[in-house]
Write a protein that binds this DNA or RNA. Structure first.
Lengths: 235, 235
DNA sequence: GCATTCCATTGATCCATCTCAATGAGCTCC
DNA sequence: GGAGCTCATTGAGATGGATCAATGGAATGC
């Protein structure tokens, strides 16, 4: 049982959008909706993976706690994003923790059910691959960013992702709190704050949870700037 | 046409190991083997992805060149590892570059062929998901490492991955040259060298392309050590 | 055997980020 | 409206890694 609006959201997800309508409906009929408090755990790393999730509303973070206790944020998802596909369908254990970072609603679909439909309708595979592929892409992007960009540049890219426009001025709302943004970008909150400060020179003003960008194009130029050319600009 | 030994190697890959024998053979019949010089390009990022690859021998690196020109190594694969599955099967473009870092042989399978077989034998999906999932895992691990560990700790983990034993002493051969190891671990060759130096205190001696580890267990302890506890050890 | 070249190491310095600590701004609860 | 809380910012100092430059060593060619 899944309400009408929830179905709409789910069908727009990468996972479902490639599926024929009847098939999507059948899966949605058997899905369950869950309301989660801020901070609620969805699953833990190491748990047997038995379900695929789609975020209906709010924000969910995927993170890994390494053996030394440090927390590494691996993804932050909102409305329409699915997670857990590749893992659940293999019957493996979840490699990360999932937690609600705002109050939120998620759709939970049992992996067994999908596998069953998969046998009957192989075209689902492509949909699942598409969703998995998107995760893969995002992780590749993260690795690249961590290896090749400074903190301020990562912040700039983060803001650019939020921008609805390609150039000119714009104001964006920071989607979740700064501690999480910092984690997502692989830095401490203090460093994020300083990174914002550095972006002021590139025309970015952050106030509360809004960032005003004077010129999107020049912010992009900053994000893509080579490290070695960065200093030459200082003089 | 694929020679007998090549077939053996390919069938041990994650991608093929889950497939029924007849199906694997059919795909291998249509695959082609390629001999590559050191430094040869296998594909470029942005190119339409039409094939899935399996390494038969030698080493292949996947890397991304970001807009500022920096190179980020995203994976380094050897015998039995497949790459490109998720992408090629979606008909997307490759998100990374692939290059032979040693002289090597790879098996190339046209995506169209797999898709065709997929329609007829849906169980291939699981195999593909398994292979894709392994990539996903490895990327999650990389993100975690980059965010939560120091360079020396990443080097320690890299060595531990090469160790055939769980504790005691052991000597491992560095599988590829140090420039690439450094890239794979997200640092410069100079830093790698210093990281090796730092590991000397933990009983690691590197000579040429061999590393002698006095005690695997204590090296693991070093790798998993919390950053904040690191200083207390210095005194 | 010797020169050449490539790669690894080492040293000195610089810059970015982390850490620890203090302050400040916004929010909730009474 | 003020007390207390959380979260964001700012400052000072330490550290890790990058950079630039020089040296050392191993393999290759003649």
């Amino acid at each position: 049982m899944t309400s009408k609006t929830n179905r709409e959201i789910a069908k727009q997800s990468i996972l479902f959008s490639a599926l024929p309508d009847g098939l999507a409906s059948r899966l949605l009929d058997a899905a369950s909706t869950h309301e989660l408090q801020r901070g609620a755990t969805i699953f833990l790393q190491g748990e047997p993976a038995d379900s695929v999730y789609i975020v209906l509303d709010g924000w969910v973070k995927l993170f890994r706690v390494s053996s030394n206790g440090a927390e590494a944020v691996v993804g932050v998802f909102t409305k329409g994003r699915s997670f857990g596909e590749a893992v659940a369908l293999r019957g493996d254990v979840y490699p990360v923790n999932a937690e609600a970072v705002t109050e939120c609603r998620v759709l939970k679909i049992r992996a067994g059910l999908i596998l069953e439909q998969m046998r009957a309708h192989p075209e689902i595979c492509t949909a699942i691959l598409a969703a998995t592929f998107r995760h893969l892409q995002s992780l590749v992007g993260q690795v690249e960013q961590l290896k090749a960009q400074t903190g301020a540049q990562r912040v700039a890219e983060f803001l650019l992702d939020l921008c609805p426009v390609k150039d000119g001025a714009c104001t964006v709302r920071l989607p979740y709190d700064k501690v999480l943004i910092a984690g997502r970008l692989g830095m401490k909150p203090e460093s994020l704050s300083r990174a914002f400060g550095r972006l002021r020179d590139s025309g970015v003003v952050v106030k509360h949870n809004h960032a005003a960008i004077a010129d999107v194009a020049s912010l992009r130029a900053f994000a893509e700037e080579d490290r070695s050319s960065a200093w030459s600009k200082a003089e």
